[in-house]
Amino acid sequence: MRAEQERAFREFAGERALWLRRSAYLLCGDWHLAEDLVQNTLLKLYRAWRRVDLSTVDSYARRALLRVWLDERRRPWRRAERNDADPPETGDAAGDPAVLGQRAWRRDAVLRALAEVPPRQRAVLVLRYWEDLPTAEVAAALGCSEGTVKSQASRGLQNLRAAIAESDPDLARAVARRSR
């Protein structure tokens, strides 16, 4: 790779690493795994940097992150063990800049509920509502039709609401009052 391309990649990685990490966390629900996913994504992106169109590099990185996450979920050792317990130590609330200022109990309830949503629906919810992508871009990133994105988003929101209502009825009532 030429020095100019190397510099462009380093700038991209420096600017987008936090964005990729947040997206990865929303997909997997684990900060450590999210960091691993971002590292693998950046590695794949680095290998393909010469061929990447810089006008669509964000879309390419998003698609690579989704594929790395899906590959990680398919690994056999991920299926063998399910970690439902809370970790013994608590994370630093300031470590998640995307939710600074929000109340910790709401954030935790929503993230726990998001982890209950099936993976494909979770990916649609993250891309559509967190990343604020149009339906067409979500469909392109996931390799499906726009109708599939819409139906997965609808079902995902229903499942998210149900998971929130089950785990935290107070938050469910607060969300219902806001939507009126």
Rank of each mutant, 00 (worst) to 15 (best):
R2K: 05
E11S: 12
G14I: 09
E15L: 15
E15W: 11
R16A: 09
R16K: 15
A17Y: 13
L18R: 15
W19Q: 10
W19T: 12
R21P: 08
R21A: 07
Y25H: 12
G29H: 08
D30W: 04
H32N: 13
E35P: 00
D36N: 15
T41I: 00
L45T: 04
L45H: 05
Y46S: 14
R47W: 04
W49Q: 09
R50I: 06
R50L: 07
T56P: 00
D58K: 11
L65N: 05
L66Y: 07
R67S: 14
V68Y: 02
E72C: 14
P76A: 13
W77L: 12
A80Y: 04
A80T: 10
R82S: 06
A85L: 15
A85V: 13
P88T: 07
G95H: 05
G95F: 07
D96R: 08
L100H: 12
L100I: 12
G101A: 01
R103M: 13
R107M: 07
R112F: 04
A115V: 00
E116S: 11
P118F: 05
R122N: 06
R122H: 08
V126F: 05
L127H: 06
L127G: 04
L127A: 12
R128P: 06
E131N: 13
E131A: 15
D132Y: 07
P134I: 02
G147R: 06
K150N: 03
Q152M: 07
R155W: 00
Q158K: 13
L160K: 01
L171M: 02
A172E: 11
R173H: 10
V175Q: 02
A176T: 14
R180E: 15
R180M: 11
